[in-house]
């Protein structure tokens, strides 16, 4: 096994695309090192991207923010601009593991690890986040929901890596929120996760909404039916009721050590409603 810590994106790409064996990218390492320890993966090459300056940066851009792939979650939580613009994304990223994990884990790592239960992914999806991918063919952009293909699988080609996430600016009277269910207060993997983002018109009616679910299918789901339940309404009791039903109906969960199908379906609805209530409150304040 080789360890490389290139200082330029292009070097990282050529290392990754040139490796004939198994290559893995090391950002925060909070998933990779666990996999190494258990013998789940035995890479021939590890490319540490933390020495690449553009991967370490958070920058303002077109009313939004660009977050480098090696920025740890703790830095997001400390960034007042992002906290104000996308509090749901920050709170989702802030739920990934302990304080110690926060010091290392990145949202791009969370995205590319492609766990169906990744906390930051539903929040990024509802934020309309865009991933910038670098590869042997140059750079391309795609919505974050297009990255995960299934548990542990991404749509990225050999030699490609996500170098940043762009969180767009948003209209006034917008709010987002992410909630997850875990049995303890901390340190668990989400049994269900729900991200909601919505925008209100001047009349207080919902003009746009996105709802995404985590841990209820092979990858995070963007649920249009759930969003439709909110759009055009005052996000009142009846709308929330329809939202919960649509969220539950969209679930395609499994029974596993973390929860049953029935539990996930039911709780997805409960959390969708609660997340929407928080997003609504935030939208009214903005």
């Amino acid at each position: 096994m080789r360890y490389e810590a290139p200082e330029r994106v292009e070097t990282a790409v050529s290392l990754l695309s040139g490796e004939r064996g198994l290559a893995r990218i090391l950002a925060g390492g909070t998933d990779l090192l666990v996999q190494l320890k258990s013998g789940m993966v035995e890479p021939d090459l590890i490319v540490d991207i933390k020495k690449i300056p553009e991967m370490r940066r958070i920058g303002a851009e077109n009313g939004g923010f660009r977050i480098g792939a090696a920025v740890p979650s703790a830095e997001l939580s400390e960034h007042p601009g992002i906290r104000a613009l996308w509090p749901g994304v920050v709170e989702a990223a802030g739920l990934i593991g302990s304080t110690q994990i926060q010091g290392r884990a990145t949202i791009v790592g969370n995205l590319c690890n492609a766990s169906p239960a990744a906390d930051s992914v539903p929040a990024m999806i509802v934020a309309g986040a865009i991933a910038t991918v670098a590869g042997p063919q140059g750079r391309r952009e795609l919505p974050v929901e297009a990255i995960a293909a299934g548990p542990g699988q991404t749509s990225l080609a050999k030699g490609e890596l996500v170098i940043s996430i762009f969180l767009p600016g948003r209209p006034p009277r917008s709010g987002d929120a992410y909630l997850r269910f875990i049995p303890r207060t901390e340190m668990d993997i989400a049994v269900v996760g729900v991200g909601v983002s919505l925008t209100l018109g001047e009349d207080g009616l919902c003009t746009a909404a996105r709802v995404a679910l985590g841990a209820v299918a092979v990858r995070a789901l963007l649920v249009d039916e759930a969003a439709d339940a909110l759009i055009g309404t005052a996000v009142d009791e009846a709308a929330l009721e329809r939202l919960a039903a649509a969220a539950s109906a969209a679930c395609r969960p499994i029974d596993d050590k973390r929860g049953t199908k029935e539990f996930r379906i039911k709780v997805a609805g409960v959390l969708a409603r609660r997340a929407a209530e928080t997003a609504l409150e935030r939208a009214r304040r903005n």
Binding site: T185, M187, I189
Partner: peptide, 24 residues
């Protein structure tokens, strides 16, 4: 202790063997 149908332990780690943490 959570066992699968294969008789194997499914949660042999602190992540899924959920002991109380300080905030609990």
């Amino acid at each position: 202790y959570i066992y699968g149908a294969d008789g194997k332990l499914q949660n042999p780690g602190f992540l899924d063997y959920r002991m109380p943490v300080a905030s609990d």
